[in-house]
């Protein structure tokens, strides 16, 4: 199977590598910035183009991988579905829940597989937590605290820093944790959120959520794009018989360069594993296309995650809890 990648910076780079690792040939690289497309196309011996819509319609392509800014996802999903391609779409699924529904309908109509990359479901540390909880190691879980973020990301043309496009840290980053909470603990009941959302005086974002699940579990979720540098994930699950903690700063390695071009460097702890979680999600997607497995995450799950962040941002605007 051959893959066309749309959006070649940031996550696009990762997906090109992961698809290749899975034995797929990435043959078309589309990016508005032809320089970026050409650079990666050269690396993978593929073709560089600027028009993502044209990539969707190529007859020599089986899979379209979308790693563009969120507001463009629906357009590419629809074009790829109409052309009969299977679709790998980076999270967040779409910029609104109604767009997500439109995307699901398009894929259903075209009978193509639409996968959304909620990669945290594939992270080994998160899977380990889920396994321990399922094994009853902490009794009945009653509280969860998840924390994720660090440096405000740039993205091509700084689209992450445009709230209208990215939805800020709540929409783009915290969505991982809200999805994981629903994955492990079931449906949410109501959500309350405070977020900075790039107010005039702060050109960054910090989001704080209180979430009640239908099971009664309470969660506090923090997302930050307010830090001067770094990236950190912390998780804590408390139950009637114990608790679980994870902190990404406690990692097997940390590297620090003496000099870097862009200014001060910092040690970003890293945790090498046998198979990257990004590859695991591609393996799941490919297995689903080949009808050999059911994927861990569905487009419906991705829609629910978008509904949760939409509710969070509605709460942040109104100062009221929002029922889900």
């Amino acid at each position: 199977m051959k893959v066309a990648l749309i959006g070649c910076s940031g996550m696009g780079n990762v997906h090109a590598q992961m698809a290749t690792n899975c034995g797929l040939k990435v043959s078309v690289f589309a990016d508005k910035n032809i320089k970026i497309a050409k650079a990666i196309a050269k690396q993978y011996k593929g073709e560089a183009i600027t028009d993502g819509m044209a990539a969707c319609e190529r007859t020599d392509i089986d899979i379209v991988a979308i790693a563009t800014p969120t507001p463009t996802h629906l357009m590419f999903v629809k074009a790829a579905a109409n052309a009969g391609k299977h679709i790998f779409c980076e999270k967040p699924f779409c910029r609104t829940a109604s767009e997500c529904k439109e995307a699901i309908a398009a894929a259903k109509k075209a009978k193509v597989k639409l996968f959304v990359g909620h990669v945290v479901r594939y992270f080994q540390e998160f899977e380990a937590m889920k396994t321990q909880i399922a094994a009853g190691k902490i009794g009945e879980p009653g509280f969860a605290k998840l924390y994720r973020g660090g440096l405000l990301p740039m993205g091509s043309e700084s689209w992450f820093r445009d709230f209208e496009k990215s939805g800020g840290v709540t929409f783009d980053c915290m969505i991982h944790d809200l999805d994981w909470l629903r994955y492990v603990f079931g449906e949410p009941e109501r959500i309350f959120c405070q977020a900075l959302m790039y107010t005039k005086r702060v050109p960054f974002d910090y989001s704080q959520v209180t979430l009640r699940m239908k099971s009664g579990l309470i969660a506090t979720v923090i997302g930050t794009w307010a830090h001067p540098h770094g990236f950190q994930v912390k998780a804590e699950i408390c139950g009637s018989g114990g608790m679980i903690q994870f902190n990404s700063n406690e990692a097997p390695m940390a590297a620090m360069k003496r000099e870097v071009k862009t200014g001060p460097d910092w040690a970003l702890p890293s945790s090498p594993v046998d198979i990257s979680p990004y590859q695991l999600e591609w393996e799941d997607f490919i297995g689903w296309i080949r009808d050999t497995r059911t994927p861990r995450v569905t487009a419906h799950d991705a829609l629910r995650a978008v509904q949760m962040v939409e509710a969070a941002l509605q709460s942040a605007k109104t100062g009221r809890p929002v029922a889900l």
Partner: peptide, 10 residues
């Protein structure tokens, strides 16, 4: 705003 629970000690 506050959510309260009584669920960590059975």
């Amino acid at each position: 705003y506050c959510e309260l629970g009584n669920q960590l000690h059975n």
